[in-house]
Design a protein around this nucleic acid. Structure first.
Length: 480
RNA sequence: GGCCCGUUCGUCUAUCGGUUAGGACACCAGGUUUUCAACCUGGGAAGAGGGGUUCGACUCCCCUACGGGCUGCCA
């Protein structure tokens, strides 16, 4: 079993790896599609290969330029850089037709003049009789001399006996009986290519060596391999990966809420955490859970991909996010935070706010689960005087607390501005009143941040600096 | 209906015939604490069911159940 999965197929070891991501532009970049793209990217990058992008826009009715734009944006945000430009499948239609006619000329395909109504009638009858509904065209072996001058499609003349075997890097050896596969349409009656033909031609022309895609294509792989065979082309190594399911175990759908990668960006997740999470979803490298891009690229392999669909678990993403914030340097976090503000339509930062956030970043990003949380914690550097306490904070600023604050101010006036000293001074004042730190911290917090939740009061003092700290404390003490 | 794929703690997974079935997230309890959080310690938690094969099966084979996919002149 294992050896089967590891056996490379037709592509010689010397040929450079070429993978591709081939979404159809009918909507945003789905989180499942993002993972497929990631796997292809990791595989290529780890082997010095190329990762190509092809937009499967042959369905003119459903394809939109907006969707293409959204997909490119999504991939870019995720950091999945592709080699060369994005190829439009639609623009390659003439080449697809050319291949269809080549197969026709070689006797591997035939013209079928059956109308949609006739095909439907065939299927209904088959269903009624309990026979296979796969369409069997009467034109398969018709003498060209009998061909009418009428609209027709070009169908693949697929073998009816024997088996088609797919050696899949994930699914193992999968066998299909040829009588279960029909003569699929390659060229529609309007002369445009179908997806089945187009993928094969494009993958071949683009030199794709490894086709890593969702396992909803596993059955298609059998059909497609017949085209490779008909054309005498090398069949690429297939790797059909299980689709991701929602937290309820059902197939991902709109009702699960946010699904586009852009939505995850808006939820405040950094791209690095998404990459790590998505890579670990359905793929494993022993017990490694948290890893860098470099490690992922180095470790990723097809054999480590599981065969069962995995469910999305945002809690785990939250956890990984915290770890990635710790691993990222402060400037990088700030940079991505600003991108977050931009996509969420929030106000951009002033220079002072940016400096303040950067100074406070070690505390802000520590164990944070998203950018929104960092912003929440950083509230104290984003505001300017006068600090307006919210309801809870206001309660902490009663008259007793205010008098303690005013007692504190002169002590801080000349203290050396370092954490230990500040702690000592505040503790001493607290002790003088027979209180613990826990009794006066809320007031300090309210004075400095205007809130009941914030980073440590001492961290805030250090970031704010002596002047600003004293100004805020004085204001709060005077009750203004 | 036919064909194909899947099924280890709640979740993601490790395990390549011999393990007290491990880890992570989540959860629960206790501790710690200037808030939220974090942190420390401990805990509960799994091989879908049934047949084989084997000295020995989570691992291999078959059946059943359940889930998913395909069965388009969609991709």
């Amino acid at each position: 079993m294992v050896s089967e999965r590891l056996t490379p197929m037709s592509a010689p070891l010397t040929s450079p790896v070429v993978t591709r991501f081939a979404p159809s532009p009918t909507g945003f970049l789905h989180i499942g599609g993002a993972r497929t793209a990631l796997f292809n990217w990791l595989f290529a990058r780890g082997r010095g290969g190329k990762f190509l992008l092809r937009i499967e826009d042959t369905d003119r009715a459903r394809s939109t330029p907006e969707a293409t734009e959204a997909i490119l944006k999504g991939l870019t945000w995720l950091g999945l850089s592709w080699d060369g430009g994005a190829v439009s499948q639609f623009e390659r239609a003439p080449r697809h037709a050319e291949v269809a006619y080549q197969m026709l000329a070689r006797g591997h395909a035939y013209k079928c003049f059956a109308t949609q109504d006739q095909i439907e009638a065939f299927r209904e009858a088959a269903r009624a009789e309990g026979r296979s509904t796969l369409y069997q065209s009467p034109w398969r072996d018709a003498d060209p001399a009998t061909h009418p001058d009428a609209p027709h499609v070009i169908r693949l003349k697929a073998p009816r006996d024997g088996e088609t075997v797919i050696e899949d890097a994930v699914q193992g050896r999968v066998v299909f009986r040829n009588d279960q596969l029909d003569d699929m349409v390659c060229l529609r009656s309007d002369g445009t290519p179908t997806y089945m033909l187009a993928v094969v031609v494009d993958d071949h022309d683009m030199g794709v060596t490894h086709v890593i895609r969702g396992d909803d294509h596993l059955n298609n792989a059998a059909r497609q391999s017949q085209i490779y065979l008909a054309m005498g082309w090398a069949v690429p190594q297939f790797a059909h990966i299980p689709l991701i399911h929602g937290e309820d175990g059902k197939k991902l759908s709109k009702r699960h809420g946010a699904l586009g990668v852009e939505d995850y960006q808006k939820m405040g997740y950094p791209a690095a955490a998404i990459r790590n999470y998505l890579a670990r979803l359905g793929w494993s490298h022993g017990d490694d859970e948290f890893f860098s891009d470099d490690q992922a690229v180095q470790w990723f392999d097809l054999a480590g991909i599981g065969r069962a669909p995995a469910r999305l678990d945002l809690k785990k993403l939250d956890h990984l996010t915290a770890l990635h914030f710790s691993a990222m340097n402060d400037a990088a976090v700030l940079h991505e935070l600003e991108a977050f503000l931009a996509v969420t339509g929030a106000d951009l930062l002033t220079g002072a706010q940016r400096n303040g956030l950067l100074a406070a970043m070690p505390q802000l990003k520590d164990k944070a689960r998203n950018f929104g949380q960092i912003l929440e914690r950083g509230h104290f550097v984003l505001i300017s005087r006068p600090v307006v306490p919210d309801e809870k904070a206001a309660k902490a600023l009663d008259s007793v607390s205010r008098s303690i604050l005013s007692e504190l101010t002169p002590q801080l006036q000349n203290a050396s501005w370092e954490r230990e000293r500040l702690e000592a001074i505040v503790s001493e004042i607290a002790a003088r009143h027979g209180l613990g730190l826990g009794k006066i911290a809320p007031a300090l917090r309210a004075a400095l941040a205007g809130r009941s939740v914030s980073p440590s009061v001492f961290d805030m003092m250090l970031v704010l600096g002596r002047d600003e700290t004293l100004a805020r404390l004085t204001e709060a003490a005077s009750g203004s």
